[in-house]
Design a protein around this nucleic acid. Structure first.
Lengths: 188, 188
DNA sequence: CAAATGACTGTTTTAGTATTATAGTCATAA
DNA sequence: TTATGACTATAATACTAAAACAGTCATTTG
């Protein structure tokens, strides 16, 4: 049996259930059914362990988003499908939810770092799609990184932040708004 | 001499210098050269005192932004002038800077509430301008609240958040980008 | 007697300290 | 050569005593 994978699984389970701070290396070793020292043979410290797990989660996320894109026609539809898949992914994976809560409650620096790089990963992913859309002349030429960054932020703003003070916006409404502002523009 | 104003000035000074948490009502009374009980004749508690100060700061902010709008032609230019004035206002008023730091460091709930309502104030202000621009047919018809919210967020994203991981964007560049995305749109 | 005050009080924060828990190491064992 | 858990230095926590504080109110003042 692959000890490294056992350790990763054990850590993923514990991080998801108890969070980063409240997970001890001894706990991970116990769940993985190995000695504590063994964990350190594969991961030089706790931080590396978390980063490895989040990294592979990011890979999975890319795949899920790509699957959702397949079924969609048109740039906005594909963008909406991918982004929605990503947000759902984040909400449905206990680890991401737990880490977000932990960042809010304790501000653990490593958790902040990890979630930050996950966000950047998302932006890089979208930027690739924007670049493709420019090549296919589906949209005008523009800076792909900035465009991806702003579209992602706008999606988050609409789905998550707006409803902090107003009534929620449906996924369809959000896609329509992004089409209005980003694609069509407000000029009369 | 107006004791109420003396107290407000004293509190504004102390909040700016030491923050909300580290300011004591005794301190405020001492600076205002009144007894502690006197402070409570005008403000039933510490929270009300802070809210009053931030409220009048919001009024001042509106006036400053309006002044900057006067000198500008076109919707994007006026929007840029107003938003830039608002951001500068926030950066140049020690109280806002101090409160932001305090929210980051301690998460003081009342400070969060106050800064939140200040942000909403900004959005209401912009929404008014958007409504006006729709009436004057400078832009297409749209929901003024959502549009104001998203334009404000995009401006913040460009000027503040983008540079957390990339090289900063100048004020001119930000205005040009908002014109590109919001006004002209990305359709080819 | 209306406006102002600061001593007073119950509660919260802080500072100091003892105790426990934990990350990471390493000598030993399988 | 791989695996282990006792070990250690450091960091988190729990506890307590002391101090600071927001808000009150009986007394004072103009």
């Amino acid at each position: 049996m692959d000890k490294q994978q056992q350790i990763i699984n054990a850590a993923a389970q514990s991080f998801s259930q108890y969070g980063y701070k409240a997970t001890t290396m001894e706990q991970v070793a116990k769940i993985a059914q190995v000695g504590k020292g063994t964990v350190y043979l594969y991961f030089s410290n706790k931080e590396k362990l978390l980063k490895e797990i989040v990294r592979s989660l990011a890979v999975e996320m890319r795949m899920v988003a790509d699957q959702h894109i397949q079924a969609s026609e048109g740039f906005v539809e594909r963008f909406d499908a991918a982004l929605y898949a990503i947000l759902q992914f984040r909400e449905q994976h206990d680890l991401m939810v737990k880490l977000s809560l932990e960042l809010n409650d304790f501000g653990t620096p490593i958790v902040k770092e990890v979630l930050d790089s996950f966000e950047q990963e998302i932006c890089v992913y979208i930027a690739d799609k924007v670049r493709l859309a420019i090549e296919k002349e589906e949209i005008r030429s523009c800076d792909p990184e900035i465009t991806a960054f702003l579209m992602y932020k706008m999606y988050i703003n609409l789905i998550h932040d707006w409803q902090k003070h107003h009534s929620p916006i449906s996924r369809e409404r959000a896609a329509a708004l992004i089409r209005l502002y980003f694609i069509e523009g407000l000029q009369p």
